[in-house]
Design a binder for these strands. Structure first.
Lengths: 335, 335
DNA sequence: ACTGGTATCGGTAACGGTATCGATACCAGT
DNA sequence: ACTGGTATCGATACCGTTACCGATACCAGT
């Protein structure tokens, strides 16, 4: 059941009665092959069941069809959807994604970048613009397209595809103030590591200042984002400051916990206490209380990044310092 | 900023004043190298910043440090956590995971298997035991460790790591009957493609039959699992049959929708209407109404699969037709 | 007939490692 | 001195593909 020797190009060439080079050219659609031989080779390839050896190919021209994807976490549906979008974006291109998870750890990120670059990938997709100096240097001098996703707040190395988290926070603040909110609370998880959440928070506070307002109370924890953490922190926040009319959460997972706290304690959370999250997770469509959220185009970002690498593969230029803005959508319920 | 030529083993060897072979042996910790030369080579490697070329290595011995991972979907946190567990399980091993998404499509799965195997990976992790005949043949004749995860209902090709979905459904039925439930409803999404959900449903019905009971009503849709679908279907189910005292859902996402329907309509769902899901998602810990669920060790499954491939790399045997059962945990609220 | 261009093809080298085998040096034992 | 064993090292071949360059055949134009 094991180890039939692999069919190589030489086998195909022999079966077609041509040289390896002609077979290679024929199968790649390269020029300088007669119509006759193209057919002969293609038939021989089919007959022998030739599949090609991506390792030999990659080794030969020092450029693989692998692409690297680095995400901070896979305990959250958001980055899973990014991966899903990437897979969609490269479908049929022959590119093969590898992935790595940093756990929001800059050291791990650096190691992953080194490791993925050593495969001579056709491109590298990394999350965010906040790499360490050493990582930036590595990426800058790499001879492959670098795409930073999910963020545009900063100086991209190659292309950046995403949106401004600062602006997202600020816009949410504006929208909530426009809805008559005045007494704001904030609940956040892991801001010291999740720098994008931190910038949303900064933007949110800036948005409040724009209207001469400021945060009334807040609760934070350094544990990972979770609905349970959101529930607990909301409970503590409201115990401390019951008169809030709006709470901004670091994301929808945490915000859902806030909603659950209200539901459990019989406190309504629409008009008197508006809950605002971030991401526009599917679950926000079904909650008994509608919450405000910023719908992020995470799948689209992955898709665009994948497509960009496909284009780069066939010769397109991945511009340096190019920002591709994919708009977020503010979703604020009628209150 | 581009294209410093790569440091190769020959450079290191030259810097150390030895041959490529000695340098190779020294860096790999292979025998037949003097203590002196080991030090010399290691120092030369550090000085030159040698990183090694995994492509050349893989090409050379027709065996890469890549591993393939095939999951049906990444729109669900479950398989993201599996990937996360795999990443954890192989950490520090030098193995590099590639991934592919089938969208529950057997044709895509076959293509992915072909594609991933062509990289001569150190192992392949595929979801479930329900591959097509052609895919099975491919996997069976592949000269790499094959691990099928998340399921044990069937004949594994190499190793299977997971649990029985049929038993999980059946046990849940038993537990719910033991809690005094008698009038059962079912809500499911995408059972024609998600064969594991289908087997849970079959097991659940079998469990009811064990007690001389049967389903009172059910609602199904072929759309993908979602909380919103769960909410809508639950609404329809209860409109059709208001007197149920328990609803089993195809998974927790859908079940959460059921809870939300009840919350929105002011119907309590604990004692009078028990909601039961599957997976033990984090969110179930925070819902205002506690639901019954089967907690699945999905991260542990990924972790174990990763570890198994690490072991296989250093010589361990990945047994054929071996099943590794990782227990699920029934969580049924006090009612 | 000779020249130059075009179309088509194949031989060789190269990519960067490791397997394999043979060579060398040295030492102990006779 | 000779033998055999052990420790250490290097030369060569090979993995499968493509880049590069040279060879050949044929045709049109003079």
């Amino acid at each position: 059941m094991e180890n039939k020797p692999r069919v190589t190009l030489a086998d195909v060439a022999a079966a077609a009665g041509v040289s390896k080079m002609t077979a290679s050219r024929a199968l790649r659609g390269a020029p300088d092959v007669s119509r006759e031989n193209i057919q002969r080779v293609e038939q021989a390839a089919r007959k022998t069941g030739y599949v090609g050896n991506p390792l030999a190919l990659a080794f030969s021209n020092s450029k693989s069809n692998l692409i690297g994807v680095i995400v901070p976490s896979l305990n959250n549906i958001v980055f899973a959807e990014v991966l899903s979008g990437i897979a969609q974006g490269i479908e049929g291109s022959g590119l093969q994604p590898m992935f790595g998870v940093t756990d929001y750890d800059a050291t791990k990120e650096l190691e992953l970048i080194k490791s993925l670059l050593s495969w001579n990938p056709a491109g590298l997709i990394v999350t965010g613009l906040d790499q360490s100096d050493e990582a930036r240097a590595l990426l800058t001098s790499a001879a492959v397209p670098i795409i930073q996703i999910m963020d545009t707040d900063g100086d991209p190395i190659g292309a950046a595809i995403g949106f401004s988290h600062f602006d997202a926070g600020r816009e949410m603040a504006n929208a909530l103030v426009a809805k008559g909110r005045r007494r704001f609370g904030y609940v956040g998880c892991g801001l010291s590591k999740d720098l994008r959440a931190k910038r949303r928070f900064a933007g949110f506070q800036m948005g409040l200042r724009d209207h001469g307002l400021s945060l009334t109370a807040q609760e934070q924890t350094e544990t990972l984002s979770s609905t349970e953490a959101g529930r607990v922190l909301t409970s503590e926040l409201l115990a401390q400051e019951p008169n809030l009319d709006c709470i901004y959460f670091s994301n929808d997972d945490v915000a859902a916990g806030g909603v659950f706290h209200c539901l459990a304690t019989g406190r309504s959370c629409d008009n008197e206490l508006l809950i605002a999250g971030f991401n526009g997770l599917e679950i926000t469509r079904s909650l008994p209380f509608k919450i405000a959220t910023t719908i992020t185009p995470r799948r689209e970002i992955g898709f665009a990044a994948g497509k960009m690498l496909v284009d780069a593969k066939i010769g397109a230029d991945v511009g340096a310092n190019d920002k591709v803005y994919l708009a977020t959508t503010l979703s604020v319920p009628f209150v």
